[in-house]
Design a protein around this nucleic acid. Structure first.
Lengths: 233, 233
DNA sequence: ACGGGTATTTGATCTAAAACAAGCTTCCGA
DNA sequence: TCGGAAGCTTGTTTTAGATCAAATACCCGT
């Protein structure tokens, strides 16, 4: 199953510390698949059949409310696990996952999780660490929502995307996948209109350059100040 | 160490499915302690020395921002684990924990966690399940913050408290520990003034009865409608 | 029973951001 | 190269809820 050389993948964080033999075994149980842009990987409420490791691309994790409002819980990048409902003792996926660009990922059948805990405890521990850091990250976002205003939240969201997935260009740090005003509003709990106004204002001040589904951060330090709420004009 | 009879504690959720021998062993490694009301159990940023199981009482888990704003992440009740930084691969506590009433709890040294995974895998699995459900709960709160207005969030918060920790009285369901308007505002991302106004309005409609640090829900169904945003007047 | 601290209520004003409403730009497929 | 859809901008109006500002109620210790 591995066209992927085990040695190439060995330093992806979820595999850190696993011995060679176990890694090869674990990879042999995975299915590798390509997902084209916009494809739904799994749906909220659906029975959790698999868990995934993203090898290349970006995935949006989306929560949908009964009223139809949509919130982007996080973006998954390169080398991250997702859809790990089984590790959390869940039978159903708690969110949707949709590719933001073309992706390649590994997947394991969810029912394998029990075996994994026993046979590859290092991998299990790494997975739990992922869960732990997501809990923290989510809690931090909650605090941010409760205490910061919209501009700071938007600054923070863009800053994080730039740091995690940004690509250096001659103009600044480009967020490396198509992201709309609407998407950013769904990450920060506001409206696309407000995001548009904020980005326009920043563009005038030379902090960002942006276009259709495209954002480049030119003055990340300024943006960090805005995120911290230290600058008001 | 166990004045506590193992058989009494055996059906506390984190211990579910553990065999008798392991349970006794696990309990023998715990320290049991009483914490009086208002006492700080641990602080955000402090090195994680122990993890805890609350046997009786209520604990507030609080996140503090660099600016000094305070957010109540959750209330811990009877039979719940908390301070489980070690299980998440963290070296420091990510929040404060303060008792909301007099409490009794068990604690284990954090450095034991490695041993626990090996020797009491069932307990470890239960712990991870706790983490999983907290991640979900936190994510749901985030969605709520992003999409619902203040009154709905307050309704939801009070409803949850009433369900989880409420005591039936002849007037309705009483939240069984002292909770101020300020506390509720810190749970819902608003101000004590707004909470006060909302409670006054509800009191006029006969949905709740409330006093100083005391709330009784008299019409929980009405409150559930408000939480869902189905009622506007 | 009194006094001071803590919690609550309620009014008045202000404002950030939502909602409403057009118009404009960019892209892509026919 | 044209037309329509999707995405973006920007002006205006509205409003939920914060902020400002007192006044009042309750509780506990002496």
């Amino acid at each position: 199953m591995s066209l992927l050389d085990a040695s190439l993948i060995a330093d992806v964080p979820p595999f850190r510390g696993i011995n060679r033999e176990n890694l090869v075994e674990l990879l042999s149980k995975a299915k590798s698949e390509r997902y084209e842009i916009g494809r739904t990987i799994f749906c909220q409420g659906e029975e959790a059949h698999s868990f995934f490791l993203l090898l290349d691309g970006h995935v949006r994790v989306i929560k949908v409310t009964p009223e139809g409002d949509q919130v982007i819980a996080r973006y998954i990048s390169n080398g991250e696990l997702f859809g790990i409902a089984h590790a959390l003792g869940l039978e159903r996926y708690p969110a949707n996952a949709v590719t933001a660009v073309d992706c390649v990922m590994l997947s394991w059948p969810g029912k394998l999780w029990g075996t994994i805990i026993e046979k590859y405890p290092t991998f299990a521990t790494n997975t739990y660490q992922t869960v732990g850091s997501r809990l923290q990250e989510t809690q931090n976002k909650l605090v941010e929502m409760a205490t910061k205003r919209v501009e700071q939240r938007v600054a923070n969201a863009i800053l994080k995307l730039a740091n995690q997935t940004g690509r250096k260009t001659d103009e600044g740090i480009l967020i490396d996948f198509p992201i709309s005003r609407q998407n950013i509003s769904e990450m920060t709990g506001t409206t696309l209109h407000t995001v548009s106004r904020i980005l326009s204002a920043w563009e005038n001040k030379g902090i960002v350059k942006s276009g259709r589904k495209k954002i480049t951060v030119t003055e990340d330090h300024q943006l960090a100040l805005l995120a911290a709420g230290e600058l008001y004009n």
